[in-house]
Protein backbone atom coordinates (compact mmCIF):
# COMPACT_ATOMS: atom_id res chain seq x y z
CA UNK A 1 0.00 0.00 0.00
CA UNK A 2 1.40 3.37 -0.95
CA UNK A 3 0.12 6.86 -0.50
CA UNK A 4 1.61 9.84 -2.23
CA UNK A 5 2.74 12.68 0.00
CA UNK A 6 1.55 15.13 -2.67
CA UNK A 7 -1.95 13.84 -2.22
CA UNK A 8 -1.69 14.53 1.46
CA UNK A 9 -0.50 18.05 0.81
CA UNK A 10 -3.38 18.61 -1.55
CA UNK A 11 -5.75 17.35 1.09
CA UNK A 12 -4.30 19.57 3.78
CA UNK A 13 -4.48 22.63 1.54
CA UNK A 14 -8.04 21.81 0.61
CA UNK A 15 -8.94 21.53 4.24
CA UNK A 16 -7.08 24.70 5.08
CA UNK A 17 -9.08 26.53 2.44
CA UNK A 18 -12.30 25.24 3.86
CA UNK A 19 -11.45 26.95 7.13
CA UNK A 20 -11.73 30.34 5.54
CA UNK A 21 -15.46 29.97 5.97
CA UNK A 22 -14.95 30.29 9.72
CA UNK A 23 -16.41 33.10 11.70
CA UNK A 24 -14.22 36.11 12.12
CA UNK A 25 -13.96 38.49 14.97
CA UNK A 26 -16.23 41.31 13.92
CA UNK A 27 -15.83 44.56 15.74
CA UNK A 28 -18.89 46.69 15.90
CA UNK A 29 -18.81 50.41 15.45
CA UNK A 30 -18.47 52.56 18.48
CA UNK A 31 -21.58 54.33 17.21
CA UNK A 32 -23.60 51.40 18.44
CA UNK A 33 -22.75 52.35 22.01
CA UNK A 34 -25.90 52.21 24.01
CA UNK A 35 -27.45 55.18 25.63
CA UNK A 36 -27.50 55.29 29.34
CA UNK A 37 -29.24 57.50 31.78
CA UNK A 38 -26.80 59.93 33.33
CA UNK A 39 -29.21 62.56 34.56
CA UNK A 40 -32.56 62.60 36.29
CA UNK A 41 -34.11 66.07 36.04
CA UNK A 42 -37.02 67.39 38.05
CA UNK A 43 -38.82 70.47 36.73
CA UNK A 44 -40.92 71.84 39.57
CA UNK A 45 -43.44 74.61 38.91
CA UNK A 46 -45.06 76.70 41.61
CA UNK A 47 -48.71 76.87 40.54
CA UNK A 48 -49.17 80.32 42.05
CA UNK A 49 -46.13 82.08 40.65
CA UNK A 50 -45.90 79.80 37.59
CA UNK A 51 -42.17 79.84 38.14
CA UNK A 52 -40.32 76.66 37.13
CA UNK A 53 -37.11 75.51 38.77
CA UNK A 54 -34.95 72.63 37.51
CA UNK A 55 -33.07 70.20 39.81
CA UNK A 56 -30.71 67.47 38.59
CA UNK A 57 -29.01 64.36 39.86
CA UNK A 58 -26.12 63.54 37.58
CA UNK A 59 -23.67 60.63 37.21
CA UNK A 60 -21.90 61.62 34.02
CA UNK A 61 -19.15 59.01 34.25
CA UNK A 62 -21.56 56.07 34.43
CA UNK A 63 -21.69 53.32 37.04
CA UNK A 64 -18.10 53.43 38.18
CA UNK A 65 -15.89 56.32 39.10
CA UNK A 66 -17.55 59.15 40.96
CA UNK A 67 -20.89 58.63 42.67
CA UNK A 68 -23.93 60.61 41.47
CA UNK A 69 -24.24 64.20 42.67
CA UNK A 70 -27.53 66.05 43.07
CA UNK A 71 -29.04 69.47 43.53
CA UNK A 72 -30.99 70.23 46.62
CA UNK A 73 -34.66 70.79 45.92
CA UNK A 74 -35.76 74.10 47.44
CA UNK A 75 -39.49 74.61 48.04
CA UNK A 76 -41.72 77.11 49.76
CA UNK A 77 -44.03 76.03 52.57
CA UNK A 78 -47.78 75.90 52.07
CA UNK A 79 -47.49 75.98 48.29
CA UNK A 80 -48.80 73.89 45.43
CA UNK A 81 -46.46 72.54 42.81
CA UNK A 82 -46.59 70.52 39.65
CA UNK A 83 -43.69 68.30 38.77
CA UNK A 84 -42.35 66.72 35.64
CA UNK A 85 -39.40 64.41 35.40
CA UNK A 86 -37.03 63.79 32.52
CA UNK A 87 -34.19 61.37 31.91
CA UNK A 88 -31.18 62.44 29.91
CA UNK A 89 -27.97 61.00 28.53
CA UNK A 90 -25.41 63.75 28.99
CA UNK A 91 -22.35 61.48 28.75
CA UNK A 92 -21.44 63.24 25.50
CA UNK A 93 -21.78 66.97 26.13
CA UNK A 94 -21.95 67.62 22.40
CA UNK A 95 -24.88 65.28 21.93
CA UNK A 96 -27.32 65.32 24.80
CA UNK A 97 -30.08 62.76 24.35
CA UNK A 98 -33.49 63.05 25.93
CA UNK A 99 -34.52 59.52 26.89
CA UNK A 100 -37.86 60.74 28.25
CA UNK A 101 -39.32 60.54 24.75
CA UNK A 102 -38.59 56.85 24.63
CA UNK A 103 -40.14 56.33 28.04
CA UNK A 104 -43.26 58.11 26.75
CA UNK A 105 -43.34 56.00 23.59
CA UNK A 106 -43.18 52.83 25.70
CA UNK A 107 -45.28 54.28 28.50
CA UNK A 108 -47.11 51.02 29.20
CA UNK A 109 -43.79 49.38 30.02
CA UNK A 110 -42.58 52.12 32.33
CA UNK A 111 -43.55 53.51 35.70
CA UNK A 112 -42.07 56.35 37.69
CA UNK A 113 -42.42 55.99 41.43
CA UNK A 114 -42.04 58.68 44.08
CA UNK A 115 -41.24 58.10 47.73
CA UNK A 116 -41.15 61.02 50.12
CA UNK A 117 -39.79 61.43 53.62
CA UNK A 118 -39.82 64.25 56.18
CA UNK A 119 -41.27 67.53 55.02
CA UNK A 120 -41.45 66.44 51.40
CA UNK A 121 -45.13 65.79 50.73
CA UNK A 122 -46.45 62.78 48.85
CA UNK A 123 -46.41 63.20 45.07
CA UNK A 124 -49.66 62.47 43.26
CA UNK A 125 -49.12 61.15 39.78
CA UNK A 126 -51.25 62.98 37.25
CA UNK A 127 -50.58 61.23 33.96
CA UNK A 128 -51.57 57.90 32.43
CA UNK A 129 -49.96 55.49 30.02
CA UNK A 130 -51.47 54.21 26.77
CA UNK A 131 -53.39 51.59 28.76
CA UNK A 132 -54.84 54.30 30.99
CA UNK A 133 -52.72 53.19 33.93
CA UNK A 134 -50.40 55.23 36.10
CA UNK A 135 -47.25 56.51 34.39
CA UNK A 136 -45.63 59.16 36.61
CA UNK A 137 -43.77 61.48 34.27
CA UNK A 138 -46.00 64.22 35.71
CA UNK A 139 -47.25 64.81 39.21
CA UNK A 140 -48.30 67.35 41.77
CA UNK A 141 -47.89 67.99 45.47
CA UNK A 142 -48.55 70.63 48.07
CA UNK A 143 -46.15 71.54 50.81
CA UNK A 144 -47.22 72.31 54.36
CA UNK A 145 -44.80 73.23 57.16
CA UNK A 146 -41.15 74.07 56.66
CA UNK A 147 -38.50 71.41 57.22
CA UNK A 148 -36.28 68.98 55.39
CA UNK A 149 -36.90 65.68 53.69
CA UNK A 150 -36.06 63.55 50.68
CA UNK A 151 -37.73 62.56 47.45
CA UNK A 152 -36.76 59.29 45.82
CA UNK A 153 -37.56 59.01 42.12
CA UNK A 154 -37.47 55.56 40.54
CA UNK A 155 -37.88 54.66 36.88
CA UNK A 156 -39.14 51.11 36.55
CA UNK A 157 -39.08 49.00 33.42
CA UNK A 158 -41.75 46.36 32.85
CA UNK A 159 -43.40 46.65 36.23
CA UNK A 160 -46.57 44.80 37.10
CA UNK A 161 -48.80 47.85 37.12
CA UNK A 162 -51.84 45.92 38.27
CA UNK A 163 -50.00 44.76 41.37
CA UNK A 164 -50.82 46.28 44.74
CA UNK A 165 -47.18 47.22 45.21
CA UNK A 166 -46.32 48.04 41.60
CA UNK A 167 -43.24 49.95 42.64
CA UNK A 168 -41.59 46.85 44.05
CA UNK A 169 -41.88 45.03 40.72
CA UNK A 170 -39.96 45.40 37.49
CA UNK A 171 -36.38 46.31 36.80
CA UNK A 172 -34.97 49.61 37.99
CA UNK A 173 -33.57 51.77 35.20
CA UNK A 174 -32.92 54.80 37.40
CA UNK A 175 -33.21 55.51 41.08
CA UNK A 176 -32.08 58.76 42.65
CA UNK A 177 -32.80 60.56 45.88
CA UNK A 178 -33.09 64.34 46.10
CA UNK A 179 -32.60 66.19 49.34
CA UNK A 180 -35.48 68.58 49.89
CA UNK A 181 -35.68 71.74 51.98
CA UNK A 182 -39.01 73.42 52.52
CA UNK A 183 -38.62 76.94 53.83
CA UNK A 184 -41.03 79.68 54.81
Amino acid sequence: MTSKPSFLFGLVILLALSFSSCEKDKDLDAENEQELITTVRLSITNTTTNQTTVFNVRDLDGDGGLPPTGDEVLLKSNSSYTLSVSFLDESDSGKIEDITEEVEEESAEHLICYASTGSMPTVTVTDKDTNNQTLGLKGSFSTTAAGTGTLKVTLKHEPEKGSTAACSTGETDAEVTFNVTVSN
Partner: peptide, 9 residues
Amino acid sequence: PRLTIRGAF
Protein backbone atom coordinates in the same frame (compact mmCIF):
# COMPACT_ATOMS: atom_id res chain seq x y z
CA PRO B 1 -22.77 49.64 48.49
CA ARG B 2 -21.86 51.41 45.27
CA LEU B 3 -24.19 54.27 44.36
CA THR B 4 -25.16 54.74 40.75
CA ILE B 5 -27.91 56.57 38.94
CA ARG B 6 -29.82 53.28 39.09
CA GLY B 7 -29.57 53.16 42.86
CA ALA B 8 -27.35 51.17 45.16
CA PHE B 9 -25.49 47.96 44.25
